[in-house]
């Protein structure tokens, strides 16, 4: 018994098998950070670290719903997150109009609106069988259209002081509230995915919808619920983002759209569904933010930054984003 175990447990294979994508991403994030110190002295310090985690937190929160949708499989993807983020921020900005007392009710409303948008996505995908990519893309257009129609480009309102204090400014010691919020969301997502029936069903649906259905999972319900949650989390992301940006503009969420997908993939969640974790997405968001900050710290021209980002992304996804080889 013990000899067999010793034979199997030779250090290297055991170590590599434990080296899951989220862990690789996290190690990569630390290496990148230290690398930053080598390239430009002064990059490595506590303030910088906190700042990077803070920026990554916004991407991470916005990518939470994306993680769920991608795990649900069936080409699942949510391209409406960006405009829902924008909508969430604009709604909070307008409706609170700077009043601290209105923060909680408005947050509730914002998340409800986000969930509603996600619900429509899910219904269209499940019952009208519109491919998720185009369904959520069209929905993004509709949401953007509603924003334009209602605001007519005039974005009046104010960010409540309390939100600024709680989210972006140092809350406990030098650490801003958004980081605690992110950690809290991380724990909630872990519980949701690993410790609830919904989580189990979500993975089952992502692996194979037919077998999930035959095992008694109500597949349509799970999928619709997942898109609704994605919308809700994106709207929440917009709410949080407002605490950081202070102002809103019509394309506030735009730059988070594809990074939210990249963070999920870099974190080892398979785009084909059924496998993944939010903890991976968190590491992925850290890696992406680090690459961004590193490139910016070098003072490279925008064009060069873009090329390097593309190459780094290609390298990252080729480490473990590979699909199965064909076999006879």
């Amino acid at each position: 018994m013990t000899t067999a175990k010793a034979k199997r447990g030779s250090f290297v294979p055991n170590f590599t098998s434990r080296l899951t994508p989220p862990l690789i991403a996290l190690i990569l994030a630390i290496v990148l950070f230290l690398l930053g110190g080598v390239i430009s002295p002064g990059f490595v310090n506590a303030n910088q670290a906190i700042n990077i985690v803070r920026l990554a937190a916004f991407l991470g929160i916005i990518a939470a719903g994306q993680t769920l949708v991608i795990i649900s499989g069936g080409e699942g993807i949510d391209l409406s997150v960006a405009s829902v983020v924008t909508l969430g921020a604009i709604l909070t900005f307008r409706l609170t109009d700077g009043q601290d007392a209105l923060i909680l009710p408005v947050l509730g409303l914002v998340m409800l609106v986000g969930a509603g948008i996600g619900l429509v996505n899910g219904l269209g995908i499940v019952f009208l069988r519109i491919p998720p990519l185009v369904m959520t893309l069209a929905m993004a257009g509709v949401v953007q259209g509603v924003i334009l129609q209602v605001t007519r480009g005039e974005l009046e309102g104010e960010t409540p002081d309390l939100m600024r204090t709680l989210i972006a400014q140092p809350l406990i010691g030098p650490i801003p509230g958004v980081i605690f919020l992110w950690i809290g969301l991380g724990i909630a997502m872990w519980l949701l995915l690993e410790r609830t029936p919904y989580g189990k069903m979500l993975f089952a649906v992502g692996i194979n919808r037919t077998t999930a259905m035959l095992s008694g999972v109500r597949v349509p319900l799970v999928v619709v619920l997942t898109y609704a949650m994605s919308g809700m989390l994106a709207a929440f992301g917009g709410f949080v983002l407002l605490g950081f940006t202070d102002i809103v503009f019509l394309n506030l969420g735009g730059r988070y759209l594809f990074p939210s997908i990249a963070a999920v993939v870099v974190g080892g969640t398979l785009l084909s569904g059924g496998k993944g974790s939010y903890w991976g997405t968190m590491s992925g968001a850290l890696v992406l933010q680090l690459i961004n900050s590193l490139l910016q710290a070098q003072g490279l021209p925008e064009a060069t930054q873009s090329i390097i980002l593309g190459v780094v992304l290609l390298v990252l996804i080729s480490i473990y984003g590979r699909q199965r080889a064909f076999r006879l």
Partner: peptide
């Protein structure tokens, strides 16, 4: 054998 969506998204930056 990289996933098409993220691959072509990455190359679009290049």
């Amino acid at each position: 054998r990289l996933q098409p969506i993220v691959t072509t998204y990455a190359t679009s930056f290049i």
